[in-house]
């Protein structure tokens, strides 16, 4: 075998076209984010009941807290920036939630898949180039809309029109704020800690040092 020569290109600091192929570190870190998010889901499964009772006076407003289950896909995509990351992260988190055991059973997996897809489609619509706040919030809204669709189909098929409307709008708002804005802030914070040094996301937010 001939030695693969490495060529020094010292001035190539310009933006390289990002590769869509998943590296091992992309897969593993996406997995870790998915799993850690799944643990947050488990906590949220329990915590959201009393919270949603607070707003039980208006039908469907409980979906405002649904964003607690939507951030996994958005955050994973923001960190690794690969096609499918939103679906993978959200699905894995849902799997952890289901394996630990929750009230929604096997359909947690379906919800995870569809909600991940909701965010994924938005990122894909921007051809995986918009990782700014705007794209992130839209992706969060996509996940929120997906949640409204799955929940209303799977769990509240008997609901009236008022409930459906309020629930959908609440879900989208929740997705925008919790899954969108919060994920974006979390990603910026993570980048500043240097934990994302192997990712383009981490290099874009230069650590102040």
């Amino acid at each position: 075998m001939t030695a693969a020569p490495f060529i020094t290109t010292s001035s190539s600091t310009g933006r390289k076209r990002p590769s869509f192929r998943w590296r091992v570190v992309d897969i593993v870190v996406a997995s870790v984010i998915g799993v850690a998010s799944g643990l947050v889901f488990v906590a949220w499964n329990i915590a959201h009941e009393p919270l949603s009772n607070l707003v039980a006076f208006l039908p469907g407003l409980s979906a405002l807290f649904g964003g607690g289950w939507l951030f996994a896909g958005v955050l994973t995509a923001l960190v690794v920036r690969k096609p499918g990351a939103a679906i993978y992260g959200e699905f894995l988190a849902a799997t952890v939630s289901a394996l630990v055991g929750n009230q929604w059973g096997a359909l947690t997996l379906v919800s995870g898949l569809v909600q991940g897809l909701g965010a994924e489609l938005v990122f894909a619509a921007f051809l995986y180039t918009n990782w700014r706040l705007s794209g992130t919030v839209l992706a969060g809204m996509g996940a929120g809309l997906a949640m409204a669709i799955t929940d209303l189909t799977l769990w509240y098929p008997g609901a009236g029109i008022l409930f459906i409307t309020v629930y959908s709008i609440s879900a989208i708002v929740s997705g925008a704020v919790i899954a969108g804005l919060l994920s974006w802030l979390a990603m910026r914070g993570l980048a500043r800690t240097g934990a994302l040094s192997r990712f383009a996301a981490g290099r874009d937010v230069a650590a102040p040092r």
Binding site: A3, F6, P18, R198
Partner: peptide, 21 residues
């Protein structure tokens, strides 16, 4: 990692061939 993660100069070999191979 590859180009995405940094740049190399010179040669690094194990038994005359690049480690990644």
């Amino acid at each position: 990692g590859g180009e995405e993660e940094g740049e190399a100069s010179g040669e690094l070999e194990i038994d005359g061939s690049a480690p990644a191979n």
